[in-house]
Design a protein around this nucleic acid. Sequence first.
DNA 1: GGCTATTTGTTCAGTGGTTGAATTATTTGG
DNA 2: CCAAATAATTCAACCACTGAACAAATAGCC
Lengths: 412, 412
Amino acid sequence: MTRPDAPPGAVRQGSLREWNLAVVLGRIAAADRPPSRAGLAAGTGLTRATVSAVVEDLLAGGLVAEAEPTPRTGAGRPSRGLVLATDGPAGLGLEVNVDYLAACVVDLAGRVRHHTVLRADLRPASPAETLARLADLAARARADAAREGLTLAGAALAVPGLVDDAGLVRLAPNLGWRDVPVPALLAAGPPLTAHVDGVPPLVVDNEANLAALGELHAGPAGPASFLHVSGEVGIGAGIVLDGSLFRGARGWSGEIGHIPVRPDGPPCRCGGRGCLETYAGQEAILAAAGLGGADLPADTATTRLAELAGGGEPAVLRALAEAGTALGVAVAGVVNLLDLDTVVLGGGYAPLAPWLRPPVLAEISRRVLTAAWSPVIVRPAALGTAAAAVGGAGSVVRRVLARPAGWLARPA
Amino acid sequence: MTRPDAPPGAVRQGSLREWNLAVVLGRIAAADRPPSRAGLAAGTGLTRATVSAVVEDLLAGGLVAEAEPTPRTGAGRPSRGLVLATDGPAGLGLEVNVDYLAACVVDLAGRVRHHTVLRADLRPASPAETLARLADLAARARADAAREGLTLAGAALAVPGLVDDAGLVRLAPNLGWRDVPVPALLAAGPPLTAHVDGVPPLVVDNEANLAALGELHAGPAGPASFLHVSGEVGIGAGIVLDGSLFRGARGWSGEIGHIPVRPDGPPCRCGGRGCLETYAGQEAILAAAGLGGADLPADTATTRLAELAGGGEPAVLRALAEAGTALGVAVAGVVNLLDLDTVVLGGGYAPLAPWLRPPVLAEISRRVLTAAWSPVIVRPAALGTAAAAVGGAGSVVRRVLARPAGWLARPA
DNA sequence: GGCTATTTGTTCAGTGGTTGAATTATTTGG
DNA sequence: CCAAATAATTCAACCACTGAACAAATAGCC
């Protein structure tokens, strides 16, 4: 009763070219210096003839450009370096969070060409109001992109909550959202782009997921598998396995806030006891540090904690050590389960990493069986504020890179 | 600094046929009645002409056969049904466990054509002795396979421990193994098969991983993502995500025995406190049930527990409830993290499932945020004893199904 | 029994895309 | 200024899929 995964689909004649477009474009994107056609041929195993043909398609489609200052090599006819176009498709990244809105535009090469963050406490506002303000931000980002000659290939919106496939936000506790049909509310403006490859123009995803994606593609060569922990009011995690984001059966992976850390601990709103969130959630840390009363916006609170910790404030240091230990217990379980080699401290944890890292590492080395053979890396996130917006925008352009044929065949 | 996953390799002319061989073969394997060439064409989107050509290759290579009793359809020329060959390639599955050795042969269609289990306490034996006995079992299985006209395409060996890529068993605590170079010790006999596609003839893998693979392909249509928990002396888990086994960065995923369940609990040999293993490990359950002294072999102990629980023995029922709750706490954390929709109780847990399931479900519904929207299924494993051996043998033949071109091109 | 409708499987010219070798283009070094 | 070297393009050949026409085999119907 064998039932192997039936291969997705048959390969028709034209799929060959589609695939090779992606291969060549991927190589150009991954190279650290503009590769020549000949170099691509050597690297991919294709003939120079084929590479030339493929590159011609990419040039004509505006996905690739020839680097102006020809990179010198030695004797022989000089090669013409190929780079990703910076005036082609781009991705729009949006983010709604508890205390800010963000919009950004990322081009094919991964450069952030536009970035706006608008600070505001959004908990009192209704979803419609918030999304109207976001649409405003998005409109400005789009105008900016158009001015720079970029064509938006789609948008991604990050929200701190559970989202289903259709973009319905089932639950975003810290925003007070429940069953908010985001695409319908946000589509009030002019349509972003026609569907490409069946992907809707606006993808809504969890903030932790998109931040993890951003982290994956930031930096020189992101590790293949890692856990990206975002410490905000809640605690979310994005899981990257073998270089791609793991979303789970329904797209709701990464709920680590309620891993039991000390079952004899304080009760949690989830019904359990001693959940991670009750030790390492932002409110918990603030309370333990003696700053519970002050109703600061989230990022200010984090900055304040970092300052006080830097100044050696004992209560704050104790609170962070406590939080780090709890985080370490939970993370160690995840690392044992998934055999990850890297843990990234993101979101609100990034600025607190100097104090959180040691206890996290300590718990990992105590509890992870295989840590002795190959150590687990724990590091702060490379991306800063609104990492999820940048990650989301990046995921849009990366769709184009992964299937350039879809972009090339788009209706004018 | 975008760095998209460079597509694996370029597609050359012949890859097209290679791919379509896999597509068609996969469809034949997945169908529940022998499909016709015309049906395959309709299903895959290829032309009937192409399908005919592809099928001809598969028939010539002995991977597929025409079903003798032509399945009747209605008017028109009768179709000739295609089935997987049962006299073609087969996989050899081997297993070393604490109290038994096993060997089995699985054919292309997934049928178990040979199965031997040899009970023996292997803890006192040296790795070399144990592997010599296993080689003996394997030789008999191979002779049996040859008698039935099967050609072995490779072998997989399951061990209860941590294995690296080269087949070195780094640590198998319950066997007392450390750094055992299994392939070298087992290769004493005649070589199994030449490398196909760069895969060594003998693959060594973790028992929980292979059992999970077996579970994935047993039953009508295994769920795409699930956790397979094996309760033996230790507790291991195999993780299947989107229909394929997740092995982790170094192949050591699935260590769930040391997830903290009750940090105020008894100390564990890992250094932590209140680990899952101290509540739901086999020894822990036996001790809690008042059977700690009896030094029974593992499977006997499990059977005994099931009998006593069936008889309503209060101490045993209490012990199982306790173990189930602990297991539920740990599993809930995993389900939250990975958003799985199914949990399979395998290994020693399978016969105890009637008593473990309720507390596990209770903890899941308490702790898994999304359980309210779509319930998590908890069920006993479909495969019985030596599930890992069967799963391993299945993984061998499934390699052939996934890349038939490699098999067809093998050196005669 | 013979005819038609129907469906399966095969044959064959046509086409898209890659291959491999030859050719052209453009530079460095002597 | 020419030879050597490397890059890119051109072109006939070839491979695998496509589409349509055709042969094969059966059921239903008179």
